[in-house]
Design a protein around this nucleic acid. Structure first.
Ligand code: FES
Ligand code: FES
Lengths: 159, 159
DNA sequence: TATATACTTGACTAATTTACTCGGGTTTGA
DNA sequence: TCAAACCCGAGTAAATTAGTCAAGTATATA
C-alpha cells in the first residue's frame, strides 16, 4: 500500500477546511500557512479532491474551498483514494497475477490486509476527527499562531 | 507505511522455507527458482532475516536456511519489520513532531492506523499461512513445475 | 586435500516513485 | 482595472526501492 506524505497532506488539508469553513470558503494560501504545506502542492491536491467531488471551489477574491458534503460523510479513505488512486497492497493490484503460473503464495494475505486497511480508513470521518480533543487543541494553537503572524505582518505594513 | 515488494518477497520466501524445510535446509537457489525472486536479492533479504534471528543458516554443500523458531511463532509483522525496519505510518516516525509548533493535526490518526496495521500483521503467523488451502494448492503446483524443470535439466545433462 | 556448493558482505547502480516547482492561464469581487 | 484566488500541465529534483556485482568464507564430500 502507499500511505505517503501526499495522502497525509490531503487529509490534513481537508481537516483544515472542515475546521475553518464556517466563516466562508477557505483559501489555499491560509491552509499553506497553517499546515506548512507548499501552496503549489496544495493546488495539485485540491485539483484531485475537487474532481472526486469532495470539495467545491469558489473562484475570485474571497474565494477558496468548501467541503462538498458534510464532514461526517467524508471518510479518510475517500480522501486518500482521491489523491492516491488506490490503497491496494497486493503486487498484482487486481490485474494479472504476478507469476506466470498464477497467483503467488501470498496474494490472499495481501488482499485481506488491504481490506482491513481500507475498512479502517473508511471508518474514520473528517467529522469525527474534528471532534477529537487533541485535534481541537492543536487547531486552536494554530489559529493563535496565525493570528499573531497576521498582527506582525499588519504592523510591519503600517510601519 | 511502507509495504513494498521487499516485504512481500520476504514473506513469500519465508513461507517457502517453512513449506520445504522438512526435507532439510532450504537453499536460496531453490527459493529463487520457485518464487521467481532474484538470487542476489534473496541474499540481501536473508541477511536481515538471519540478523533478526528468524532463520538459521547452514553453510556448505547441502546447506541453506531453516526457520529459527516454529512457524506458528513467526508473525508476518516480524518478517516485514526485519527487512523494512518499521511499519509506522506517521510522518514524524516517533521522532520530533513534524511541525515546529508541535504535533500535526493528524498525528494521532496515523498513529492509530499504524497500530491497527501492526496488529493485523502480528496476528497472522507463517504457520497459519501454511495451513491455508489456497497456499497449499499453489505450493503443490510450484513443486510440480519445479520437478518438471529438474527432469528436463537432468535429461539434457544426460543427453 | 581439492572442489563445488552455498552462505556472507558491502558497495554500487538502475529504476521507480514521490514530492515539489514553475509558468502560464481563467474567473470574479471590489 | 486590479488583485485575489482558483486552474492546469509540464517539468524537475529528491528520495526510495529494487536489484546487481564482486570478492569473499565455511564446509560436505569425493
Ligand atoms: S499479489 Fe496477486 S498474484 Fe501475487
Ligand atoms: S505525524 Fe507526528 S507530528 Fe506530524
Amino acid at each position: 500500500m502507499k500511505l505517503t506524505s501526499k495522502g497525509r497532506y490531503a487529509v490534513t488539508a481537508m481537516l483544515d477546511v472542515a475546521l475553518h469553513q464556517n466563516v466562508g470558503p477557505v483559501c489555499l494560501a491560509d491552509i499553506s500557512e497553517r499546515q506548512r504545506i507548499s501552496l503549489s502542492y496544495l493546488e495539485q491536491l485540491f485539483s484531485k479532491l475537487r474532481k472526486a467531488k469532495l470539495v467545491n471551489s469558489v473562484r475570485g477574491p474571497g474565494g477558496g474551498y468548501r467541503l462538498a458534503i458534510a464532514a461526517v460523510d467524508i471518510s479518510i479513505g475517500a480522501v486518500i483514494i482521491a489523491v492516491n488512486d488506490s490503497v491496494i497492497a497486493t503486487q498484482c493490484k487486481g490485474e494479472k497475477p504476478c507469476t506466470p503460473s498464477g497467483r503467488c503464495l501470498t496474494h490472499s494475505l495481501w488482499n485481506d490486509f488491504s481490506k482491513k486497511m481500507q475498512d479502517f480508513l473508511d471508518s474514520v470521518s473528517l467529522g469525527e476527527l474534528m471532534a477529537n480533543s487533541e485535534v481541537i487543541a492543536i487547531s486552536k494553537k494554530q489559529n493563535m499562531v496565525q493570528g499573531l503572524q497576521n498582527d506582525i505582518l499588519h504592523t510591519n505594513q503600517l510601519g
